[in-house]
Design a protein around this nucleic acid. Structure first.
Lengths: 160, 160
DNA sequence: TTATTACCAAGTGATTAACTAGGTATTTAT
DNA sequence: ATAAATACCTAGTTAATCACTTGGTAATAA
C-alpha cells in the first residue's frame, strides 16, 4: 500500500465530487478552483479514476464528472489504488524462495500489515465520510494539536 | 500520513531487530544481508530511528543496535513517522482561512481520515506483530484469501 | 594496536510529484 | 453552422525523493 499526497489529492477531489455531485456534473475547473489543484493535474488523476470506473465524464458545455457508482460503493482504498501504483516490496516476489524462515517471516508480517491497512481503507466509503461529516463521531479522538496528540497515550479507535 | 517503501524498509528492519535482538545487539551488516537492503541506506534509516530514540547503537566489535525501548512500546506509526516526514497537505495550513465552508469540510474530512489511519498504525506494536506471527488469526480482521481480496487493485507486481 | 562496528557527509542516477503547454474530440447554445 | 465549453490526450519541466555509492571519522572490544 502506498499512501502519498497524490492519493490525498484524489481522495479530496472525490470528496468534492461527492459533496457537489447532487446538482449535476461537476467540472474539473470547479474542483481546481475549490481545492487548489491544477486543472491539468486533476485531468491526469481523473484519467486514472476513469479507467477504474470510479468517475464518469460528460463532455460539452454543462458537462463534467459524476461518480462512477454510488458513494456507498466507493472506498478510500479504491481511490488510492487507482492513482497510486501498488508497489510490491518484498525481494522474493511473493514466492517462497527466501533463504531463511526468518526472512520470510518479516516479509509475511509486512504483507499482513499491508493487507490490514488496505482492508481498513476499504472499509471506509465516500458516503460514510460525507454522511458523518468526518470519521470521529462520539468517542473518537479529537486532534486539534497533532504534535501533542502523538506524544503519548493510547486512544485506540476500534476498527472493523 | 505518508506510507511509502521507505517506511516499509524501516518497519522490516525494525522487525528484524525485534526478532534477533534477544541475543545481543544486531549489526546493520546482518540486517543488510538478511533483508537485502544496502548498508548505507540502512545507516540513514537508523539515523532517523536513533534520533527518535527508537533504536540505540553500540559501537565497536560486538556492537550493533538494540531497540530503544520495549517492543511493546514501539508502534508502526512511530517507525513510519520517524523516517517518512509528515507532510501537511491542506492549502490553508491548518488554519480556518478557507473561503468556503465546503472547502474546509473536505479538508477536515481528510484530516480525520489521516488521523484515523495514524491511530490504526499506532495501535499495532512490534511486539504484537512478532507474538502473533502476523496480524491475522483472531484479532482485528477476519482471515481471508489475500489473492481474491486484492483483485480490486492494480496488482502490477514489478519487482526490482 | 588492530579490527570492527557505529556514525557522518556528499553525491548520483532513476523515479516520481505536481505542474505547464498545447493540442483534439464532443456536445450544448446561439 | 458556428462558437464556446467541456472532457480528453500527449509531451514536456522543475523540484523532490528513493535507494544507493563513496569515502570518510569515532568509539570500542580483542
Amino acid at each position: 500500500m502506498r499512501l502519498s499526497t497524490k492519493g490525498r489529492y484524489a481522495v479530496t477531489a472525490m470528496l468534492d465530487l461527492t459533496l457537489h455531485g447532487g446538482k449535476g456534473p461537476v467540472t474539473l475547473a470547479e474542483i481546481s478552483e475549490t481545492q487548489g489543484i491544477s486543472l491539468s493535474y486533476l485531468e491526469q488523476l481523473f484519467a486514472c479514476l476513469r479507467s477504474k470506473q470510479l468517475v464518469r465524464g460528460v463532455r460539452g458545455p454543462g458537462g463534467g464528472y459524476y461518480l462512477g457508482r454510488d458513494a456507498e460503493e466507493i472506498s478510500i482504498a479504491d481511490i488510492i489504488c487507482a492513482v497510486d501504483e501498488w508497489v510490491e516490496f518484498t525481494r522474493c516476489g511473493g514466492n517462497q524462495d527466501c533463504q531463511e524462515g526468518k526472512r520470510c517471516l518479516t516479509h509475511n508480517l509486512w504483507d499482513d500489515l499491508s493487507t490490514e491497512i488496505y482492508n481498513f481503507l476499504r472499509s471506509i466509503t465516500l458516503a460514510e465520510l460525507v454522511e458523518r461529516g468526518g470519521l470521529r463521531e462520539g468517542g473518537c479522538v479529537k486532534d486539534q494539536n497533532k504534535e501533542a496528540d502523538m506524544s503519548g497515550m493510547n486512544a485506540s479507535s476500534q476498527v472493523a
